[in-house]
Design a protein around this nucleic acid. Structure first.
Lengths: 189, 189
DNA sequence: CCCCTTCGATCGATCGATCGATCGGGCCCC
DNA sequence: GGGGCCCGATCGATCGATCGATCGAAGGGG
């Protein structure tokens, strides 16, 4: 593993545990096994580090979601696949996703606009999937936007409590979330 | 409105917008219309302020939840009432609840333990409500704990996006969330 | 009615500590 | 001996918190 990767890994862990503003440069350096001065040999500003983490995580989510959307004709299957992918990502990389979901406000200006645009692009895929399901008569929701927000909050919340060392396996988790998603979206049983 | 209330109001707004560590004493003072020195005439430490906000908000939630649990014999009605109350609270006081949900990590030691205990007590009411519904054969979930976490994350997420000035009214919102909650918990239709 | 005491409220100035970030120079391997 | 890699020392700024001093209103004894 390169030093740069070690820095990013430390940043992900600390940002997730203490928050962006709660993490100091010296904390990052110590966690990465470097001096605070050396740290700057491998990164730009602290904010650059945060943007990089968010960009990587969101890009992966978008890529996976677009692949599902483009290869799953059945509207119900598409939604379930999106839920399973999202939950798997949030359970498998809880720290990365928690940072993406929780530290957006630490960004300002263009950086923030860029990351928000990525997030909006990802959520649009979900919005379309729900709308398609409703139009096909397979889902029944009062308001697609509200359903999208509720569904995404439910699935993203996994990163706030799931532990891979706990009794619940990743497979079980995704299956249960798929079932709950279909239920809350009024899918035919 | 007393000065103390104005301080707390400013703190709630800033903590919600920028986070606890992202809010400085001078920011708080300016928002409350005081000097940073005068601020300390009306509060203890910055952490005291945060604990006070969390304690108030969580206590109100617990009181409301216990009232519902003690006065709603039907298991399905009980769950729907809890959802409606929770959503109403998160939509009506999005900043307070966002601080409770998102700044727990800023606390340490006993203060943290106290607030976590309050949160656990609140979540236990939900856990019991779900378990009762399952035992009565009115709800059907694979794992009550997972359902509780998913449901609470979904409902709490409201504070992260709802705006009282938007097109969606509070009544519509709670009704939709009640329906989605019943769906994801496998309630008989 | 006036003076004197008391007290809550307020603030400018400042504390030591830590913040994010930078610099010059040393080390080591090719 | 030149170039990546690394760090001790330090920068100006800001952090949370405290200090002594001042203000005006309230209260009471003569």
């Amino acid at each position: 593993m390169t030093t740069e990767e070690r820095v990013r890994e430390a940043a992900v862990r600390l940002f997730a545990e203490r928050g962006f503003h709660g993490t100091g440069i010296r904390d990052l350096a110590q966690a990465a096994g470097l001096s605070s001065a050396t740290l700057y040999h491998y990164m730009g500003t602290k904010e650059d580090l945060l943007v990089g983490i968010m960009r990587t995580s969101l890009t992966e989510l978008i890529t996976a979601a677009e692949a599902i959307a483009g290869s799953t004709p059945d509207e119900t299957d598409r939604l379930v696949s999106l839920v399973e992918m999202h939950v798997r990502a949030h359970a498998g990389k809880p720290r990365e996703t928690a940072v993406v979901d929780g530290e957006m406000r630490a960004l300002t200006g263009e950086r923030r606009a860029e990351v928000v645009a990525l997030r909006d692009r990802y959520e649009q895929i979900w919005q379309d999937a729900i709308a398609d399901g409703v139009n096909a008569g397979k889902l029944h929701v009062a308001e697609p936007s509200v359903a999208r927000l509720a569904l995404l909050e439910m699935c993203s919340g996994v990163s706030r409590w799931y532990s891979p060392d706990g009794p619940l396996g990743l497979r079980d988790l995704t299956i249960q979330y798929g079932a709950m998603a279909l239920g809350m979206l009024g899918a035919a049983r």
